[in-house]
Design a protein around this nucleic acid. Sequence first.
RNA 1: UGGGGCGUGGCCAAGUGGCAAGGCGCGGGACUUUGGAUCCCGUAUUCGGAGGUUCGAAUCCUCCCGCCCCAACCA
Length: 555
Amino acid sequence: MSDAPRSNFIREIVEEHLRTGRFGGKVVTRFPPEPNGYLHIGHAKAICIDFGLARDYGGRCHLRFDDTNPTKESQEYVDAIMNDVRWLGFDWGEHLHHASDYFEQLYEWAEQLIKSGKAYVDDQTVEEMRESRGTLTEAGRPSPHRDRSVEENLELFRRMRAGEFPDGSKTLRAKIDMTSGNINLRDPVMYRIRKTPHQRTGDAWRIYPMYDWAHGQSDSIEGVTHSICTLEYEDHRPLYDWYLDALGIFHPQQIEFARLNLSHTVMSKRKLLQLVEGGFVSGWDDPRMPTLAGLRRRGYTPESIRDFCERIGVAKADNVVELALLEHCIREDLNTRAQRRMAVLRPLKLVITNYPEGKVEQLDAVNNPEDPSAGTRKVPFGRELWIEQDDFKEVAPKKYFRLTLGAEVRLRYGYIVKCTDFSVGPDGRVTEVRCTYDPATVGGDSGGRTVKGTLHWVSAAHAVESEVRLYETLFATPKPDDEEDFKAALNPNSLSVLRGARLEPSLKDAAPGSRFQFERNGYFCVDPRDSAPGRLVFNRTVGLRDTWAKIERAG
RNA sequence: UGGGGCGUGGCCAAGUGGCAAGGCGCGGGACUUUGGAUCCCGUAUUCGGAGGUUCGAAUCCUCCCGCCCCAACCA
């Protein structure tokens, strides 16, 4: 794993502030999710930046829910988000906040702006407002209600709060500049009427603040010094600054960075929601999803995700990080931590014809060659074994080191066997392979000869059956966002379910969520949702690097 | 054609006037009872392009090209 956090342009800005004393030497950040969906790995990048800044500069980071739109938000999402942030390894301490905590203060400040002539109540419909806002190249025109008196605005705004007007009939707008090239400054809406109960404030409010009006002021109230957000908010910074200046309150610094895009997946909550609601995946925690819940269920560790976030860097250029980097991070982490086991995914019977019937040996197997302290375990060996279908071929391709008629291979921790015969079923598929073993080669010792292939195996008499789920990328193309309809790029082979896998008996009571390396097959995790005692289900987190596959592909 | 950003190898990304870090990937080799891991070696005469300033430019200036974001009572 990488060492100390690398510097980046945000850290340079913070360090400069620390040097000049801009915020009195303090660093306060916040992670501000809207509870309208699950967190994904793009959020993990933001979380690592926000909490990492606080950690490394002796500050603190708040978790603040941006809950200003009750029509899209829910408690389920709030709970999931808190769970995911904690799982990733971060702690907001006492600082769990909600924009809704500040609704009353925000309301008071809105009246203050009305009184100073900087906000007014507008009666225009959505369509009228859109029409008068102008376009990218044409200036907007003032609303006919832009010059109402302070008294009238105040009275109307109080009646909006009191619920006297129907949804959508009025808004409170900041009076800024309808001709600005920055459309955010063309009298942005501050409040809209929504007679929708809020998950935290119930029916206390009929008007709800817009993001721009709530966000900066919430930062200010909390004493946030550095408000880190993504690039699309760059145009909002002048408005962020305008509100704070108009109110004359503590003024944090907003800094924007480029959001993470990952190849072969989508990252927008809108699209992820479509996948969930359309039944294209089994839920927000489907192991194919880029959500933290999905990655966790897939077997990813929080450490590997943090390492990934560290390696991708922080900059302002649009980017699409290759999935291969994420996979590298989890392999590297699990290589040193996951215990090794033998599991045969697609079983083929192997019979050792000169091995005594009924004999069982308990062989010693190393739990983790990367970690001697992980010790060893016993694995039963017998006359009939399961091996991988791919490990036998009637006609061996070039450089194929596995079993074929007359060839010798080593059975991991066992003996060297030589293929003498095999049977083929009516469909032409190999149904059984027969070998003889050399009793002098216990423990896999090659006894001086050159044996290039080593196969994993499971004793047929002791095998535990399991379901194993293998995954490919959710999308068949690297950039599904570039597609007309991103769903058309979905990979039909993203999930394969193998029902007859055979595991070595030590796996029988594997705990939900526990991770192993199935030798030569990859890293696997006991599915925390679908696995049950007596009915094991494993998810493949990621395969091992496979140089044989490359050789095959090259032909 | 308004405003705001961004362009360094296949993908990220350092670099802040002194002669192109690093990671992933890819290719080759060593080693190996996981075709895993580990270890070596290689992989941008060039920084979107063209001019200019300078002894010297990815870094400064000018012009041009390309890409992204903004016209929700979403965040």
